[in-house]
Design a protein around this nucleic acid. Structure first.
Lengths: 333, 333
DNA sequence: TTGAAAGCGGTACCAA
DNA sequence: TTGGTACCGCTTTCAA
């Protein structure tokens, strides 16, 4: 016996229960006082194995019950943490979560926002490290609520959740200095990204204030690949740094490798700090000190901002800034 | 000037272009020969900034344009790889991807499959390590196409993609033996999971065939947590093993830590092999030998199976088995 | 080639 | 409280 029955609709339930489809709808949505009718409808629902069509409901209500979370790269630990946390909050609030890997390309980003007009989701959490004016404009024009995760320089008409990248770099430098480092290197991300730029500026500011030697010890990468980091780390070690800040935990791991390859030791000869406080940092040998940018907190707040808007609260644009904190481990002791 | 215009529908385009809505629909779907009408419609579309409603289209076509990928834990490297690859294939095929974190609970799994009747997605890639008979039954009854990623003992009426976990363990043991290990330990996953059971059996078979000492060196964990692995590894080291197979890369990393904590060295005193060939394995110190279970290949095949079904190809149930391969690195040399 | 109209599966208004 | 019915946006059949 094939169970692949053609879909049962509300009509079938109504027929089976001997009532009108309106009554079925009401019964199913808890708008019926009549116990007997309710019973008949429930029996009929069981009998025909009725399940309301999400598509039909969406059509009527113009709500999909879905939200999207867009990140440049889901492989990146902090985006992964953010996505997971959003998903948790949304799931609790009764929304399904659609995952979008943007690749970080700003043209595609704009297309993504524009595509929201198709109304395939009720709202969007959008993460970007390159918030161009065009992108901002497109988000402001969006009919679908968008919450942006990322740092902006201007005031905007939508909700924003960000972290203080400059402060993150500062925490790292101050820690390294307090541990006795006097010649600190930076392996930074691309300067045309907001976090890349901010961490660079934070590093420079904190380093010069501390009076440590640093100016020749800055390497800016075009990407965040481990191999690029390895190359950069090798250079820094040749210049005799005694402390390095890696822009991500992966880049910091590359420093651990380079130091070992050079026959030196972390933290004896070189102290290392990473950024993201990812699992990779916790499990590294030696365990890696890392700046936690609060990806989980950002995810939670962004998701809460969005669910709030989706519930119809039409407040002024909200902003949340998560403060980074340093998690000290073996690699910088 | 607010851009938050209320949605434009096909009617607005029709009115603006001075044609019927049927003509607009045809023009938009490339079913019009008349160049002038086409032009008028396109102009009207631009003028009113019309974007077809996904909801309206879904309602008519009974297709959502979405597929779901369900995994027990997105944090797990191999599931992550699988999800990413599925997403890539689906995106190319014009489908959006919804991510579902199941948590691996089998009751919830059944609810998930049952929930498909709501028709919120067109198809599902489902990953499980505990394929209960009830679950199988539910999948077979599903009206929505499901592709299962995981090993099954029985023949089923849906597509399945799996890997050979037994062979994976065998590869690892044979490699360790060939490197000179004579007392090999296993840190295994729960035996009530299919991969946990299969890896255990593969390990036992390969170890006894090789004639190496192993029987007292098996620790089966209740979970895959790093800390549990650390504890287990400590025990194995006290028993004097010279080789360890960790059931996942994370567990293998815990062995690296435990060996170091014991003042010993990998691979000099203990050789270590993990499973998953994750980024964590590539970046570990020392770099970790790992069994690649072909997560990416499985993701690709599963996604292709599903898109094929969604395109209406109603073939017999397909099965694909991905062969594991070993990636030898420093930790076992 | 074009337009009119039915219908996909629900919800909610209105009248009984 | 209940049933009849309009309607959400789009595709597609059918007739002109």
């Amino acid at each position: 016996m094939s169970r692949k029955s053609s879909r049962m609709t509300i009509k079938d339930v109504a027929r089976e229960a001997g009532v009108s489809i309106s009554s079925v709808s009401r019964a199913l949505n808890g708008l019926t006082a009549n116990q007997e009718l309710l019973q008949r409808v429930n029996d009929a629902v069981k009998l025909v194995e009725y399940v309301p069509s999400q598509i039909g409901q969406s059509f009527k209500t113009q709500r999909t019950g879905q939200v999207a979370v867009a990140v440049p790269d889901i492989s990146n630990a902090s985006y992964l943490a953010l996505v997971k946390e959003c998903q948790r909050v949304f799931s609790e609030a009764g929304y399904r979560t659609t995952l979008i890997n943007t690749g970080g390309n700003s043209g595609d980003d704009i297309e993504l926002i524009r595509g929201l007009r198709q109304k395939y989701v009720d709202g969007l959490i959008f993460t970007t490290i390159r918030p161009t004016p065009e992108l901002i404009e497109e988000i402001e024009a969006s009919e679908v609520p968008v919450v942006l995760v990322g740092s902006l320089k201007t005031a905007v008409s939508f909700d924003v959740v960000s972290t203080d990248s400059k402060q993150a770099a500062r925490l790292a430098v101050e820690h390294l200095v307090s541990q006795g480092c006097r010649k600190i290197g930076l392996i930074g991300g691309p300067l045309d990204t907001v976090p890349g730029r901010n961490r660079y500026e934070g590093f420079v500011a904190a380093a010069s204030e501390s009076g440590v030697f640093f100016e020749e010890n800055i390497v800016i990468l075009k990407d965040f690949e481990f191999d690029s980091g390895l190359e950069a780390a090798k250079r820094l070690i040749e210049q005799g740094v005694d402390g390095v800040l890696g822009s991500t935990d992966i880049l910091a791991l590359s420093v651990l490798h380079a130091v070992r390859d050079a026959g030196l030791s972390v933290p004896l000869n070189v102290r290392v700090v990473g950024v993201d406080n990812s699992e990779a940092a916790r499990l590294a040998i030696p365990r890696l000190t890392s700046i936690d940018l609060g990806a989980i907190d950002r995810g939670r707040m962004a998701a809460e901002f969005l669910t709030s808007r989706l519930s119809g609260f039409d407040s002024a644009p909200k902003t949340a800034i998560v403060r980074p904190r340093i998690v000290v481990r073996e690699s910088s002791l």
